[in-house]
Design a protein around this nucleic acid. Structure first.
Lengths: 254, 254
DNA sequence: CGCGACCTTGAGGTGTTTCAACACCAGTGG
DNA sequence: CCACTGGTGTTGAAACACCTCAAGGTCGCG
């Protein structure tokens, strides 16, 4: 438990080809017109002139799995839209215990606008692409564009609702209920291939860090569910939800 | 455990003189000029004309301890500023397990603007006074007043930061650490009288529902801290923080 | 093929919950 | 004034869910 934190933060995950201290790489600029999240991100309903203006103050960057974009406690220098990939938001205690406080997907917004401190670290779980803005410039732009600010508000309110719902899981659910709830949640969020399998963007340790459990407990629960025929576990990170009704029942009320 | 939920929701707490189904009572209208939270609430930096206009669409209501203003899952009909008192935000599982997801104080904003569903129940912990607005009217007003919307955004971002920090406590801290963190937090938020005593607005059960523990564990932890001379427990809800440094140490990192 | 990281499984320990009894206190009515 | 009562808080003993520690297995990659 004590080693884990340092490894995750200092050294790259083994499957990552280069250290996380590697600078973020600029990538093909691309105009907003071809942006894959154009009509879901917070910039969606800006008049196209304004959107291009916003685009001017930002830049596209590519991340490799394992790279950390922002560090808990640092000054808040940048905010970003997620164009592609999955990232985790996490906080930790001095002794290395970690809690993942959010997982973000394409079109989500990350960083702390209108504030000086970054409240949690942001780390890429998969390779990812961001549309990155200097925080102060973004703040200024948002202040003068009501539509953008409204969209950001709506998104933040949604995040808050989902975060509070997750508190119920952390505070009151059993390990079995936590894992079942997690799998159903991932089933809703991730692409499902033809045989009903999803590919988790998370290791067992990261799942544990989302649910407030240990890696062993997560493993035991998942394999027990497999034994019960509720799920299948094809490959390291694959999960097939075989009996969603049974899973719902295991997830506890609400 | 199964009874608790129903009792809390259906029957009034014993010290409450009348059922929670009692209607909210209108109270002295009062203009914004004399409002105790005038320069801390979200309406703070509205031009005084706009503030009076907002005031027109709202009304002042008084609540008794135990009364519930909004119910989880209901349509979102009203939002409000807290003028006076302390309230809890809570969600629960079908079987009665409850998690308190927030505690709000004067000048805080409650309810779900720009959304149709109430994500959690809101219940008065002490007698309280609110400045209550119909949600749709408030939404409309906010949309056309950037300053109000900005203020609401800033507050929501803060709430989200604090909520995420609390997830670390729920997922990763021990009972001892949870209770210590809670007491320090309350010490920062509540008025402290001359001998350093604070009066918790919460019963042991409610403290347990905030920390994701049982009432017995909370009781044992607090009395153990008392035995260690770190705190004193004068009366049912009183707490004196004697050794804040030791408490900090017990609260774990961060 | 072989390495390293990740995942699984087992056995044992422990912190928290569960169950149960009792103490405390404020309000009520005799 | 005192006993009574219902809610709240405390304490103890036992059960148990989850964690810890330790080993072995599996997968993906060079």
């Amino acid at each position: 438990m004590d080693m884990k934190f340092d490894l995750a933060q200092i050294a790259p995950p083994p499957h990552v080809a280069f250290p996380m201290s590697a600078p973020m790489r600029a990538c093909a600029a691309g105009s907003c017109d071809q942006c894959g999240v154009r009509d879901r991100a917070i910039c969606a309903d800006l008049p196209s002139g304004d959107r291009e203006a916003l685009s001017q103050i930002g830049r596209r960057v590519a991340l490799r799995a394992g790279q950390t974009v922002m560090w808990e406690g640092d000054d808040s220098m940048v905010v970003a839209n997620v164009i592609e990939g999955t990232l985790k938001l996490s906080t930790s205690l001095g002794d290395g215990r970690e809690q993942i406080v959010g997982v973000v997907y394409p079109s989500d917004f990350i960083g702390r606008p209108f504030g000086t401190l970054t409240p949690h670290s942001v780390t890429a779980l998969t390779d990812a692409r961001l549309c990155l803005f200097p925080r102060r410039a973004f703040d200024g732009f948002a202040r003068s564009h009501g539509a953008l600010q409204h969209r950001l508000l709506a998104r933040t309110l949604d995040d808050l609702d989902r975060t509070r719902a997750w508190m119920l899981l952390l505070g009151r659910k059993s390990a079995r209920e936590k894992v079942a709830t997690f799998l159903l949640d991932m089933g809703r969020r991730l692409p499902i291939d033809r045989d009903g399998t999803i590919e988790l963007p998370l290791s067992r340790q990261q799942v544990a860090d989302i649910l407030g459990l240990t890696i062993e407990t997560v493993s035991r629960q998942m394999n027990e569910m497999k034994r019960l025929g509720v799920i299948a576990l094809p490959g390291r990170r694959g999960v097939r939800l075989i009996d969603a009704v049974a899973l719902e029942a295991m997830a506890g009320g609400d």
